[in-house]
Design a binder for these strands. Structure first.
Lengths: 211, 211
DNA sequence: TAGATTGTTAATCGATTAACAATC
DNA sequence: TAGATTGTTAATCGATTAACAATC
């Protein structure tokens, strides 16, 4: 891993890789910075700069070699060991993510989903769904390190406490609450309510009576 | 509405308001910039600057008056009419969002959820769930303007075409695909895969062998 | 009054983009 | 060669934060 990458660069590298996987399946071997940029709706200079940060070089005529770039991104952002992810209360939205991780050969793997107050079952192919009462046990047993958390407001404190006690290191937080967790736990917060209100604002601002 | 607010400010105003609703329920009447900032883990200057942008003034001793601030945020970011939202393929994750909008008195309202290939039912209290085959019909009938989209990769193009044809103005896109929609449709993209890979990176970078 | 907070400008910080020499 | 692309620096842009006069 390369230690000092900005968060936004890491996200973009992840995006590049996902697109490169697809291109590889289409038998493409090389891609230019402006082509990759176009696919992601970003600036070509951005692509070149990000690849510069991970020390990857392209050919001035052919562009970047796709298979090597995929490996190079892996060396930059992936950990050597596989890391397991759990979805807590997320429901259907996690399915596409689980499909991607568990079929592409990545270092992340969706190991379990949990839900509140409902009989568990096999929610997605290859991923077991448990009742939330078994969460601590399963997280420890499976050595799960990352959680996507999306339980109702009234459960947030109890559930996040269990998650942290079980040894999870990072949480992607879809609840509208700020989590009270130790500062060594990395939390990424996503608030769908404020994103929807923002969306509403921008779809309205030219038509609604303004100031 | 105030027409030239930066997107980040709109998001923060939405967050302020949500917190203010809670404080109002606790019978609080006033709050200082540093208190609001603390609750959101941001800088007090940020709060004051955002409120300056919407032309709201506080009392130098008591701080900001909560009920008036809530109204003022509404005037700044809400449209005069109620806007309806649909969740397409989102599943359980939408529940907390639906609960919030449909119980707090906001200008957004979750009017329907759709799912692929499963018998529909009443998924959340007060929100009907339909099979996706009825989507165009229902969106038109209910005059739904915003969609949260989270269907599997292979459905994205067809479903987003239907959504746009039905007249939706904004899409919160949780699929990993960039949508091909007319440019007057406002799209906000959220990519859970890259967020998880970023989370993995930051939880690992100090312990994994680095460069 | 002394002390604290607001409103607002200016400084800082970081991320994005433009520019261009080097290269083939 | 002429033209195109890379790698990299410098400029730009926007967002955040510091600072402080004004106020009560």
């Amino acid at each position: 891993m390369i230690n000092n990458l900005p968060g936004n660069t890491v996200e973009r590298l992840s995006n590049y890789r996902r697109i490169l996987f697809n291109l590889e399946n289409e038998e493409k071997t090389h891609i230019h910075s402006h082509q990759l940029a176009h696919l992601l709706r970003i600036n070509p200079a951005h692509v070149r700069r990000d690849l510069m940060l991970i020390g990857f070089s392209g050919d001035i005529h052919k562009g970047y070699e796709i298979s090597k770039l995929i490996k190079s991104i892996g060396k930059a952002i992936d950990c050597v060991h596989v890391q397991k992810v759990a979805f807590v209360g997320v429901g259907d939205l996690g399915r596409a993510v689980a499909d991607f991780f568990n079929h592409q050969n990545t270092k992340l793997q969706v190991a379990a989903t949990f839900r509140i107050g409902q009989e568990p079952g096999l929610q997605f192919p290859d991923v077991k769904c448990y009742n939330i009462s078994r969460m601590k046990e399963i997280i420890r047993q499976e050595n799960i390190e990352l959680c996507v958390l999306a339980v109702p407001h009234s459960f947030v404190n109890d559930v996040s406490k269990i998650i942290v006690d079980a040894g999870v290191k990072g949480i992607l937080n879809f609840t509208s609450s700020r989590l009270k967790v130790p500062k060594e736990i990395y939390v990424e917060h996503y608030d769908m309510i404020s994103k929807l209100e923002k969306l509403a604002y921008f779809t309205n601002k030219d038509t609604c009576p303004g100031i």
